[in-house]
Design a protein around this nucleic acid. Structure first.
Lengths: 193, 193
DNA sequence: GATGACATGTAATCAGTTACATGATTAG
DNA sequence: CTAATCATGTAACTGATTACATGTCATC
């Protein structure tokens, strides 16, 4: 019946620009993929559903050099549905972090294996941090500081700031865990058996 | 065929202590619920599945004051399955943060409504931060500092440290967003229409 | 006698992933 | 001629949620 969260994610993109299903999938990878992901096979039925609900309309665009595509445009109804949804507090999220679940049980792992796990993880978040910082900087130079909160770019900027803070803390936390294991290995080496 | 992530979550608890399905559901709420959640209706079939795989066994405990329960105990096979899983890097997680999705589209919200949304959110994370800091402190006083990484309590401590860092940054980020909207409203008031 | 915690499960539904299926056009 | 990108979809399966179903025992 209603509109799923994915539906709102698609409307969020279409509120900025008309796009085809394929284009939407690209934009769902980046930047929206940082906080909401979806496959093409999920996007096509959802677009049909949004069209049934009157939130979007499409027209077929014939291109010379590429296959024809369906260009989707948000309607006034879609716009007001999105506006009603956006300031509504979301239901409590279901937390699923497999890495923290592993951390909870890391005490029974071999310390060398644990170190390898956390060193790889530290690298992952260090890389993501660098990427997000670069995006943040490029928005700042485009806007001359932070975009104003009534511009679409504010959405990009605010979310990437969260990303920067999150990745920085994750990286530092990995370093702390690594330190704990290194300390434990050291004292074990000083007092063998 | 194999063991699901929920299966490993249950094994992670049973590696510390034998529990019934009902008890497991309680422990899945806290502390594991901070990073992995499951319903009772999901836990019972998964326990049956783990038993089929030989990872757990149960015996019925008749109690005087309460209904009889099935006490599940991890087997050697379950223990080694858990040990093999724990140091294996998890597959990239699917990111789903509905609040960030709303933030991405917050530019088309009414500024007063946006402020309300973020103020409520700031409070939520401030409360969670206080809870996690309290848990962290109680573990520290129990262990006299950080637990050693070969103790089960290290799992609790390391995960709660991540929680503290995460909630602190989330809270600060909410405060930053609030500030942006307040600044925008101020300058709007200075130059009406 | 009602409510809430303890205790165990099944059935129906939903959201999301993976695999399947097809086809045009461009670049190497 | 092969691989990659563009382009649109359906089908089967899996993981997870919600609703259903039953029953004990203790406390108010």
């Amino acid at each position: 019946m209603g509109i799923s969260t994915l539906g709102y994610a698609l409307l969020a993109l279409l509120a900025r620009k008309s796009l085809s299903g394929y284009d939407l999938a690209q934009h769902m990878k980046r930047p929206i993929g940082f906080f909401w992901q979806a496959q093409l096979s999920q996007i096509y039925p959802e677009l049909a559903h949004l069209e049934e609900q009157g939130c979007v309309v499409h027209r077929v665009i014939v291109q010379e050099d590429r296959p024809p595509k369906k260009l989707y445009t948000i309607t006034e109804a879609g716009h007001s549905a999105l506006r009603a949804w956006v300031a509504q507090p979301p239901a409590p999220a279901v937390e699923r972090n497999e890495f923290l679940l592993k951390t909870y049980t890391i005490w029974l792992a071999d310390p060398e294996a644990a170190l390898e796990l956390f060193r790889a993880r530290e690298q992952l978040h260090t890389e993501r941090l660098a990427l997000y910082e670069q995006i943040q900087t490029s928005i700042e130079s485009e806007s001359g500081g932070a975009p104003r909160p009534d511009e679409p770019l504010f959405g990009d900027y605010a979310t990437v700031r969260m990303g920067v803070a999150y990745e920085r803390e994750y990286m530092l936390w990995c370093q702390w865990v690594i330190q704990q294991f290194e300390k434990a290995l050291e004292s074990q080496n000083r007092l063998p058996q």
